[in-house]
Design a protein around this nucleic acid. Structure first.
Length: 327
RNA sequence: GGGGGUGUACUCAAGCAGUCAACGAGGGCAGACUGUAAAUCUGCUGGCCUUGUGCCUACGUAGGUGCAAAUCCUACCGCCCCCA
């Protein structure tokens, strides 16, 4: 059965099992806002939350960390006070977090919001996190195994990436054309899942049935405008004390945390270590943020369910229609 | 004035007669992605098209020597250093 056939039959089954009205339970409506960094997602989400009795759930892999405020462009204290945000400031930078954890946390938060009779608004730039919830990705239940990863990394060093990739293909032939043969991180994870479960990695990463009736809105911005917004934002971050924020964080946690492998943080760390000047750090931040925005766009572009909009007014209109429609 | 060096694609930078439309890096553009995802990884990057062991234009400028030049010679132009 081809991929397309499978999808079609899944859709048919869903409709058969859920007659009109039952499927689109009004209380299961989820608004999703995606878009590249610095596109203005946050402002629109806050506006929507105020207008439609909504509560915001953040899908941002770095805003989960306490103390990483300026560099991650977290909503201001004031904004956080007036509009409820969830999944922000839930971990310390020396703690690890992952898609799987995020998926569980986000679903729990969303269900709480439904119970409270409010509208959940999932907003995020971390495409994988958003999809985990919206598309209900079945993430293999295999936690990071540090020993195994270290062993495989060593093996890559001594015997080569090719060797380790072949090892993966041996126990999981389908991985040959799904896992990137040149990406060590992806190969290691695939092997990790396969070795620990004894089942192929490729057989375990499936998409489940949608959990929510989601309206996905994408914020589009021209490259020129986005670049300018990024530059302006970086400037503001530095003025707001980004350097001091990073200084405090590395004093408390050390500079080697995975959480600090983030734009704005690594550049400032390099600056603090006198590897580059502040001016260089700023221009690297701008450039890397732009690269990141582009990666986000290539992720979101693939998602044909996203309704692309240009401004707040359009967002309000679409959400209004979505909320009051029967389905 | 004398001596030495240098000029290569958007930038830096290798090449110093054929295997060069030119290593590498950066930048630019496009893409991948299911427990690190702001991470990690990939491809393209002179022009043209009939996308090919294809054609054209290119290594400061103008000539020259060679079957063959980014590579050698001459002149000129620009930049740099040293001695006066």
């Amino acid at each position: 059965m081809s991929k397309i056939d499978k999808n079609q039959s899944r859709t048919r089954q869903r409709h058969a099992a859920s007659p009109r009205g039952l499927l689109r339970d009004k209380s299961q409506k989820l608004v999703v806002i995606v878009g590249p960094t610095a596109s203005g997602k946050s402002a629109i989400a806050i506006k929507l939350a105020q207008k439609f009795n909504g509560v915001i759930v953040s899908a941002d892999s770095r805003q989960v960390y306490r103390g990483m405020d300026i560099g991650t462009a977290k909503p201001s204290k004031k904004e956080l006070k007036y509009t409820n945000h969830h999944l922000i400031d839930i971990k310390n930078p020396d703690q690890e977090y992952s898609v799987a954890e995020f998926k569980k946390d986000a679903i729990a938060e969303i269900n709480k919001i439904f119970k409270a009779g409010k509208l959940p608004i999932l907003i995020g730039g971390t495409g994988l996190y958003v999809d985990a919830v919206v598309k209900n990705l079945d993430i293999p239940e295999v936690k990071e195994n540090k020993k195994l990863r270290a062993r495989l990394e060593k093996e890559i060093k001594t015997k080569g990436l090719d060797f380790v990739f072949k090892k993966l293909v041996e126990i999981d032939p389908e991985a040959a054309y799904i896992v990137d043969p040149k990406n060590p991180r992806r190969i290691i994870r695939a092997l990790e899942v396969a070795l620990i479960t004894g089942k192929p990695f490729t057989a375990q990463r499936k998409t489940g049935k949608p959990l929510f009736d989601a309206l996905q809105i994408g914020i589009r911005q021209s490259p020129e405008v986005l670049k300018k917004r990024i530059e302006k934002r970086t400037e503001q971050m530095v003025r707001d004390g980004l350097v001091l924020e990073v200084k405090k964080l590395i004093k408390k946690y050390g500079a080697k945390q995975k959480a600090f492998d983030a734009i704005g943080y690594r550049e400032v760390i390099d600056y603090l270590n006198s590897k580059i000047t502040l001016a260089e750090a700023i221009s690297f931040i701008n450039k890397n943020t732009w690269h990141y925005a582009r990666r986000q766009m290539t992720w979101f572009k693939k998602n044909k369910e996203i309704r692309w909009i240009h401004g707040e007014a359009q967002a309000i209109k679409i959400v209004q229609k979505f909320i009051y429609q029967e389905g």
